Simulated scan of single mutants.
Amino acid sequence: MAADQENTAQSRSSRPSVGRVLQQARTDAGLTVEELSSTTRVRIPVVRAIEQNDFTHCGGGSYARAHIRLLARAVGLDPDTLVEQYDADHSGFPEPAPAAPLFEAERITRHEPLRPNWTAGLAAAIVAVVGFTGFTLLGDGSQDGSRPAHSSVAEADPSKSAAPQRKPEPSDSAIAAAPADRVVVQLIAESGSSWISVNGRNGQLLYEGVLKEGDSKTFSDGQRIDLVLGNAGAIQLYVNGKKSDNSGEMGQVQRLSYTKGDPGTG
């Protein structure tokens, strides 16, 4: 038993690390770190750290495995083999996730509470007082039998009454009344968990992490949203208020882009 463990340890120490294998494959494929990052949507600092076999920037074992799979497929390697090597090197235990990357997306979407505008409130109060005073004076002047000019506005012609408006039927979409000047995407993990990466205009990272089964997240941008789904079949996708059927299959990595004019893919 001890001899087998020693042989296994020697075998691990003699083989190239996961990061070294990925780096060599990228070099053989003629890709730069920037090109690989653009293809996989994995940030440049994370790619560089992984190639140095440093997975602390990934945010934990689940994220590290998802990154390894994306990078391996992009450079023509078998992702399952590298993930198995990663698990063997790290004894199958996930690494602790640093707090900052996990809450980075929340800082982007969080808005500061609005402060009360006392100037506007005071102006509205003054207008209300002046209007009430004018209404009172006009009312006093109409006691001699003459009709004030504003009375014609108060009386409505019954024959011209507006027909009752029909209430809109409830939509089966998960996103109600998506604004026309933005692209709105909602992701729901219906059939399992999936690693996701969400970028806005100019490649701005909106979110990167694992969406667990039963959870959902909504993202919006004024121009464009790019998605990478690590397990596309587990995700139900809604774009600009409409259900999309092109998210992909279970275990498939899917890359999608949407703009204000969709639900068709951009």
Results as ranks from 00 to 15, higher is better:
Ala128Glu: 05
Ala88Gln: 14
Gly145Pro: 01
Gly145Lys: 08
Lys260Met: 08
Val253Gly: 06
Arg110Asp: 06
Ala120Asp: 12
Pro94Asn: 12
Gly60Trp: 05
Tyr258His: 08
Ala232Met: 00
Ala49Glu: 10
Glu51Ser: 04
Pro98Gly: 00
Gly251Ile: 03
Ala128Ser: 10
Leu77Phe: 03
Ile225His: 06
Ala234Cys: 08
Arg115His: 10
Ser171Gly: 13
Thr119Ser: 13
Arg48Tyr: 00
Asn240Thr: 03
Ala180Ser: 12
Arg15Met: 08
Arg69His: 03
Tyr238Ala: 12
Arg12Thr: 01
Ala66Ile: 01
Val228Trp: 01
Leu137Trp: 10
Gly214Glu: 06
Asn202Ala: 13
Leu77Asp: 00
Asp89Phe: 06
Lys243Ile: 01
Tyr238Ser: 12
Pro179Cys: 05
Thr109Phe: 14
Leu31Ile: 03
Val47Pro: 05
Ser257Arg: 14
Thr81Leu: 06
Arg147Asn: 11
Gly230His: 05
Ser257Asp: 01
Gly200Leu: 07
Glu249Gly: 11
Gly251Pro: 03
Tyr238His: 13
Gln24Ser: 00
Glu84Ser: 14
Thr81Ile: 02
Val33Asp: 02
Asn202Arg: 14
Ala163Val: 08
Met250Val: 10
Ile108Leu: 15
Ala105Trp: 01
Ala189Leu: 06
Ala123Val: 15
Leu36Asn: 00
Thr8Ile: 08
Ala178His: 06
Arg224Ser: 09
Ile196Leu: 10
Ser62Asp: 11
Arg110Ile: 12
Gly251Ala: 04
Pro148Val: 00
Gly264Glu: 15
Ile196Ser: 00
Gln204Thr: 12
Asp144Phe: 03
Gly241Ser: 06
Ala3Ser: 14
